[in-house]
Amino acid sequence: MIASAREVLAKVWAGGTGRIGLVLVFVILFVAAFAPWLVTHEPNKLDVLHRFADPSFEHLMGTDQIGRDFFSRIVVGTRLAVGVALAVILASLTMGTLLGIAAAYAGRQAERVILILFDIITSFPSLVLALAMVAMLGPSLVNVVIVVTITFIPHFGRVARAQTLALKSAPFLEAERVLGASPVRLVLVHVVPNIMGPLVVLASMDVPVVITIEAGLSFLGVGVRPPLASWGTLLYDGYQHLSQSVWPVIFAGLTLSAATLGFTLFGEALRDAVDPKLRSRAA
């Protein structure tokens, strides 16, 4: 039932849209990993004599309102976007999974408290909750990661709980318990590996959403602080100076869209490859 990672990737590659997604995801991860070697200029270096330059061999994507090389800023922005997405997904996946398992094993009262907490968090549209929290905590990279993580915990928590409940009365778990396995061993060795499949699929499908929220917060000026380059800030600066040059908006928008599209296609292909049954639930 549980296919190896290689088999799953082969299935993703076999589907037409999955292949596009895989290629885009690979390019983005590559750029993020090797950003320092890919930049053609120092990304924060001003050059006021060459503001709003059109794309050229010298400046592949032109320059911004204070003459910074836009390609280099897009490249370091890629590293930021991927870094934030990974940090948020890993943190919320871990905490959500643990809370979900705890809810499934805890008594009725504790379970209700955890579920109500999840309900409260999801009663905010995630961007609005993140916006309200970052606005009050003050914008910074760390705060963005913390806040977005909190908004994603219930997503994983609910699935982890449902999966654990379904698994809980399985004979092999009963046997382990009767044989005297500790609860920690039970959870880490038996429950977690058995519920991970759908959670990993969910995680991959949440990547584009996290990227969108980070860019959105930065667009609204409550994300990362300058001079850090987020795709959202690049887009906002471009929008502010649309009458001088359209290139920043075009390139920032295309990059952001390619990333969200790539991760979406990849996530959907991954879901279909791992468990086609999830399809109807996700729609």
């Binding site: 849209t17 928008g253 952001l256 869209s257």
Partner: peptide
């Protein structure tokens, strides 16, 4: 099917700015 995924995936503020442009 492809167009639908594209529509869903692209953030609405990118669409807004492109429409404006």
């Amino acid at each position: 099917a492809v167009v639908s995924v594209g529509f869903i995936a692209v953030p609405n503020f990118v669409i807004a700015i492109y429409l404006l442009l």
